[in-house]
Design a binder for these strands. Structure first.
Length: 913
RNA sequence: GGGCAGUUAGCUCAGUCGGUAGAGCGCCUCCCUUACAAGGAGGAUGCCGGGGGUUCGAAUCCCUCACUGCCCACCA
């Protein structure tokens, strides 16, 4: 082994080996026949990154989490299918190719649909594949042999088939509705793709005169230019001011139309003037009012954002200009009564940034209510403990419920070219639509209504999220009755009860796409799979931000490229950091300092093994002499352990506790805790104490076997979160050259009946306390660490001393070579614990002042603690009401501290004398 | 307007049956002791956001306020 940990020298090599051996493919599972989990499925469908994307910290985070979990489950014996793939990312990809064409001096429209698609595929071939390489660099153990793309042939089949089924079930329909139109993208978008932005605008008060000029109403609006499509003015029925207006006709300014005055509860009497112009053709609320009152819907803005015929002389103007012109005209006619600054939220296109123009358009929609009901039921059962679908962190289910309970139909058609073209055919003879019952015989050639052959396929494509919504089933081969679908797709129905631990599938993704993706998968897949939900646990991680909690963005210049980190520090350090910081689903404020700390830990581990190595080559440990089969790295027998020293029993029982905790934390998706627990154990117990003790041990067979067992178990424990270094070290261990750690069973709690009994634990803490006291004495008196101290043991616990004696001297660098008589007439310092007193002659070692200061500091500290304990123990209520175990613990602590205090005070007195 | 998170050491964050607060980095002192200076030994640092309540005891449970971040939303 090299002297220092150098991840670059082996990470690639290790990954290539794993992949070439086929370890990622669950068909090659190596679980032992007696493993209780053998042949049980476990499915993680990877959230598909954009096919032409490059790895960012968000990807690195999901890959770290999913890989850690997949590796843990795999080592537990499950057949783990972690299925990778990429997404065609409709709008995003189309925009990139459009930009490319623009740079060539042409455009999408100029080259035409066919050529455009050709160029897009070409773009995909050229720019795809990068992210797969990067996911490999992170150590992702996903099954590349099953990799998929949302627009590959199988996905095409699945998307079409699902569309036909949804359509014929009445879950997909076509209709004229008010939709969110993005003039920036020239397509309709769904509600989720509209983001609200705060806009400083004006509220215009406009006078509308009654038809008979017997009075007028003043409406307040931010969009005067839409008045050309007004079809009513609404007032609140409870508004006394306008009681007499309801049912009357009112003149629409700048036009020759008259429109009715209606009463609707929606109108807020407090806002504006309490009179609302109703434009069902260009406003979502007005659309709803229109539905309630059977109002006509007019359009005055077209798909290019230009004014239409109803706008009269403003026809052809851009909306923005038309607004100015309308205001000017109103002002001219004396109808503009007031203009006041107004700040409000306006919907903008998430992708292109332009203001969304609500307008009436014929689109395809998916009916959501019935599917939402089932998706809701999956997470909301009468017995919440056994709900089929669980969110982690749990608070996400509230968000999920909230959305599903208020769900609107989903506009799934897009006027784009890059995507899945909708499998519906328009007949130019009878104008009806043909959606075939099946497409197994190919595309339809005749209209099913009139038989005409003049049919053409719908040009709209489906929202990218439509194919994403089917991803868990398309990747398994649906609609075919494939082996993977049968084996890996969860059996749990939305209406089932499930034991939380009976888990065979996980969805892990960013919390920002809980609606876009998670909810839709649940609805669509559950519908198509006879009520079986696509995954049972959903773990949602937060966004990766910089160390100040700011979003990473190029303009801020705070972007951290995970590939840079991997190149400089290795994938394991990055994984550890992301896993720890994302613990419990919290925000991930990436901090390079944390990463450096965790990398230091990996170096520590590396060196611990380097030290261990020579002690593992002993044939007594790794093989019986005489050529018998060796059983390395196994737990020493009960008898062997009982005969050996307490340090072995102590470390083994601490290891056992660590194993239990780590498994529990994995189960709860607490990767941070799983790692921290191991970190603390490895560094502060295994390295700092166990290895130091080992150096002074007899290095007996049992001693060495204990060491070997611990090292081996530690590597196993850490493998899911730091796969590269653990695999590299594992293979370097004697006898492991052609083994693979990733395919070994995960550590499980072992029978500890003869291990860490209470006495061993106590003996160890005695040792630790004494050594620490002596080290403290040395430092406080500024005695060089090099200088050996000669001392005398005054008081000792007879039962414990023989066990710890040989460790105390080397660990504290002192010699207990003096007798009590040697101390006579000399000033001595004293190190005391509850069970031991050690006297150290001070001549030539320390100045008395320093020693008296040290003693005083300790006395003060202990007195203070003792004071607190005394106070509690003299409180009758505490004694009466507190848990007896707590009282007992407090009493013990009190007596321990008293003894120590007394001893320190004696020392101080002796020093003064 | 509604909801969800968060507020703990100088910085980034743990703290899952309430028992008197921890880690990493940074800081101070000493040490290149043959696994590790990416290390070792020792040390300093906290009105656990404010206020109120429950309790023998609260960072932890309840109420309330403040601030930060995010999500949803139909006041034109």
């Amino acid at each position: 082994m090299e002297k220092t940990y150098n991840p670059n020298s082996f990470e690639n090599k290790i990954y290539q080996n794993w992949e070439s051996k086929g370890y990622f493919n669950p068909d090659n599972s190596q679980a032992a026949t007696d493993n209780p989990n053998k042949d049980k499925p476990f499915l993680i469908t990877m959230p598909p990154p954009n096919v032409t994307g490059v790895l960012h910290q968000g990807h690195a985070l999901f890959a770290s989490i999913e890989d850690a979990y997949a590796r843990w489950k795999r080592m537990l014996g499950f057949k783990v299918l972690w299925l990778p793939g990429t997404d065609h990312a409709g709008i995003a990809t189309q925009l990139m190719v459009e930009r490319l064409l623009e740079s060539e001096g042409t455009s999408r429209v100029k080259v035409g649909r066919e050529e455009f698609l050709k160029r897009t595929w070409q773009w995909k071939e050229e720019h795809g594949g990068i992210i797969q390489k990067q996911l490999r660099a992170l150590g992702s153990s996903c099954d590349w042999s099953r990799e998929r793309f949302t627009m590959d042939d199988e996905s095409n089949i699945a998307v079409k088939e699902s569309f036909l089924r949804f359509y014929h079930k009445g879950l997909i329909y076509r209709g004229e509705r008010l939709v969110n139109w993005s003039t920036g993208l020239d397509t309709a978008v769904s509600d989720l793709e509209v983001v609200k932005k705060t806009v400083n605008s004006n509220l215009y008060h406009i006078r509308y005169d009654l038809e008979d000029y017997s009075g007028s109403l003043t409406v307040a609006t931010t969009r005067p230019e839409t008045l050309f499509a007004d079809t009513a003015v609404a007032i609140n029925p409870k508004d006394d001011r306008y009681k007499d207006y309801e049912g009357k006709k009112i003149k629409l300014p700048l036009t020759d139309r008259t429109i009715p005055i209606i009463a609707d509860e929606y109108v807020d009497t407090e806002f504006g003037t309490g009179a609302l112009k109703v434009t069902p053709g260009h406003d979502h609320n007005d659309w709803k009012i229109g539905q309630r009152h059977n109002l006509e819907s007019l359009s005055t803005i077209d798909r290019n954002g230009l004014m239409m015929k109803p706008a009269g002389e403003f026809k052809g103007m851009k909306v923005k200009d038309a607004r100015k012109a309308t205001i000017a005209k109103l002002e001219e006619q004396g109808l503009l009564l007031k203009k006041e600054p107004h700040t409000h939220e306006v919907g903008h296109c998430d992708r292109s940034g332009v203001a969304i123009e609500p307008l009436i358009s014929t689109q395809w929609f998916m009916k959501m209510d019935s599917m939402a009901k089932n998706a809701l039921a999956a997470a909301k059962t009468s017995n919440q403990e056994k709900r089929a679908l669980r969110y982690f962190p749990e608070f996400w289910d509230k968000t999920y419920f909230e959305w599903l309970e208020n769900i609107q139909d989903w506009c799934i058609s897009r006027q784009l070219w890059w995507g899945h073209q909708i499998p519906a055919w328009h007949c130019s003879d009878c104008l009806q639509i043909t959606v075939p019952k099946t497409m197994s015989d190919g595309e339809p050639t005749k209209c099913i209504h009139c038989g005409s052959e003049k049919i053409t396929q719908e040009t709209d494509v489906l929202d990218t999220w439509y194919s994403s919504g089917l991803w868990p089933i398309t990747t398994l081969g649906w609609p075919n009755d494939s082996a993977d679908l049968n084996f890996y797709y969860p059996k749990t129905k939305y209406s089932d009860e499930r034991e939380p631990k009976e888990l065979y599938s996980l969805m892990e993704t960013g919390s920002d796409i809980i609606f876009f993706w998670v909810s839709r998968m649940l609805m669509m897949c559950t519908e198509l799979m006879d009520g079986r939900i696509p995954f049972e646990d959903v773990y949602l991680h937060a966004m990766v931000r910089d160390e100040k909690g700011q979003k990473m963005s190029k303009t801020k210049g705070n972007v951290v490229d995970p590939m840079d980190i991997i190149n400089e520090h290795g994938a394991d350090a990055l994984r550890l950091t992301l896993l720890v910081l994302s613990g419990g689903g919290r925000n991930v404020n990436f901090n390079i300092k944390r990463l450096e700390g965790y990398k230091a830990f990996l170096n520590k581990l590396w060196n611990a093994v380097r030290f261990t190595m020579p002690n593992l080559s002993d044939s007594e440990v790794n093989g019986e002499s005489g050529g018998g089969k060796s059983i390395p790295y196994k737990l020493p027998s009960e008898a062997e352990l009982r005969e050996s020293n307490f340090v072995n029993r102590w470390i083994l029982s601490r290891l056992n506790e660590t194993i239990q905790e780590v498994n529990k934390y994995f189960q709860d998706y607490r990767f941070d805790m799983a790692f921290n627990t191991t970190y603390q154990f490895v560094w502060y117990e295994f390295c700092d104490w166990y290895l130091e003790c080992f150096k002074s041990s007899d290095k007996s067979k049992t001693d060495k076997q204990t060491l070997a067992f611990c090292i081996n178990q530690i590597l196993h424990l850490l493998h899911p979160i730091a796969p590269f270094i653990t695999e590299e070290i594992y293979r370097a261990l004697p006898g492991n050259a052609d083994k693979a750690l990733m395919m070994q069973p995960y550590p499980e709690e072992y029978d500890s009946s003869t291990l860490g009994n209470v006495d061993d634990m106590k003996t160890f803490s005695n040792l630790k306390e004494l050594v620490e006291g002596l080290r403290n004495f040395r430092t406080e008196n500024t005695i060089s660490p090099k200088k050996e101290i000669f001392a005398c043991l005054l008081k000792r616990d007879e039962a414990t001393w023989p066990m710890i004696a040989k460790f105390v001297e080397p660990l504290a660098r002192l010699k207990l070579s003096l007798n009590e008589s040697d101390l006579e007439g000399k000033s001595t310092g004293k190190v005391s614990t509850a069970n031991f007193d050690i006297a150290i002659p001070l001549d030539g070692l320390v100045d008395f002042e320093a020693e008296s200061k040290r003693l005083n500091t300790q006395i003060n500290k202990i007195s203070k603690e003792l004071e607190g304990l005394n106070k509690r123990l003299s409180n009758r209520s505490f004694l009466e009401r507190a848990n007896p175990a707590v009282v007992e613990k407090t009493e013990k602590e009190q007596s321990k501290l008293s003894t120590k205090l007394k001893s320190l005070e004696e020392s101080l007195a002796a020093l003064k004398a």
